[in-house]
């Protein structure tokens, strides 16, 4: 079968691949893709051998910071991130959550002190995929459905 490029290539920027299809637009929204000035392509429900249906987001002229990469890893723990220069992939990595995440999610416990005072929101990552985070303050464990990304 002829290999076909489903989403137009970009000259410079970042490609996020292997996003579970149901999270493609959520991640695009999280990255505020709608307000970017450069080329943005979003494709979803593409066939994937690895994860069934996947999404791809290509962000022209943009490099992601650590916090953005961690936020993506929360929703798409198996996603890959490629840096593109002059139409070539110069760096490709699998996204992975670090052992501790700071400042990317809000604790789901309304009685947690981190929702009452101005503090750094800290979580120990107890499981990376699917993610399970334990709040440094109130010690409650948050899993997929509870995660409130900042």
């Amino acid at each position: 079968m002829k290999k076909e490029l489903k989403v137009a290539a970009i000259k410079e920027g970042t490609v996020i691949d292997h996003i579970p299809a149901e999270h493609t637009f959520k991640i695009a929204e999280m990255l505020r893709a709608d307000s970017l000035k450069n080329v943005v392509s979003v494709a979803s429900n593409l066939d994937s051998k690895k994860i069934g249906k996947k999404g791809i987001i290509k962000l022209g002229g943009m490099r992601l910071g650590d916090k953005e990469a961690q936020k993506i890893a929360l929703l798409a723990p198996n996603a890959t991130l490629s840096i593109i220069k002059n139409y070539k992939v110069v760096q490709k990595k699998k996204l992975e959550l670090p052992d501790e995440v700071i400042g990317i999610v809000r604790c789901f416990n309304p009685n947690c002190i981190s929702n009452k005072e101005v503090v750094e929101r800290r979580f120990a990552v107890e499981r990376k995929s699917p993610p399970a985070l334990r709040c440094f303050y109130c010690e409650r464990l948050m899993t997929e459905d509870d995660l409130k990304v900042l």
Partner: peptide, 13 residues
């Protein structure tokens, strides 16, 4: 002693 969960962790930190 505090009514909010995690207050002691914040204090210790």
């Amino acid at each position: 002693r505090h009514p909010s969960d995690g207050a002691a962790a914040l204090a210790a930190d």
